[in-house]
């Protein structure tokens, strides 16, 4: 083999770059990620149900929030009629965060695990408990 030193160094750099996640703090790898819904308001509900089904919310909450923002801020439309016919006030702070008052244990659990940084809080004031 010619230029042995350089070629071996190159291969080692290549292997290190590709396999780096295998060596990067894998101790925390298998943690259980479960957003908490045990706030007092939710505990007090007779029927524990969000504005839409759990499956829908899990997959599409960001799209729904985006539609809510456009409806409220751009069209002045402040009532949301859910698929089951119930009406809700379109408001992040008064509707969503009223029940889910535990941003840290609810929103942030999955978001920080999957590296999502929503820009909700660029405009909205994060609930007080977040500052704890």
């Amino acid at each position: 083999m010619y230029d042995r030193g350089k070629v071996i160094a190159g291969i080692i750099i290549f292997l290190a770059l590709v396999t780096f996640p295998f060596f990067y703090k894998t101790g925390k790898a298998n943690v259980q990620i479960e957003p908490k819904i045990n706030t007092p308001v939710i505990e007090g509900l007779s029927e524990k149900k969000c504005v839409e089904s759990k499956e829908f919310m899990r997959a599409n909450h960001m799209q729904l929030l985006n539609e809510w923002r456009d409806a409220a801020v751009r069209d002045g439309q402040r009532t949301y009629v859910a698929s089951d016919g119930k009406s809700y006030a379109i408001s992040l702070q008064n509707t969503c965060m009223n029940c889910h008052s535990n941003k840290k244990e609810f929103c942030d659990t999955c978001h920080s695990y999957t590296g999502v940084k929503p820009y909700c809080w660029d405009c909205h004031i994060a609930p007080m408990e977040a500052k704890r």
Binding site: F22, T26, A29, N30, A59, C110, T114
Partner: peptide, 21 residues
């Protein structure tokens, strides 16, 4: 179509920690 990203990350983290599930 959406997929459950949290489960996906649990799968990928399982793969790289050599404890796949």
């Amino acid at each position: 179509t959406k997929t459950d990203i949290v489960s996906v990350k649990e799968l990928t983290m399982g793969l790289i920690s050599l404890k796949p599930k």
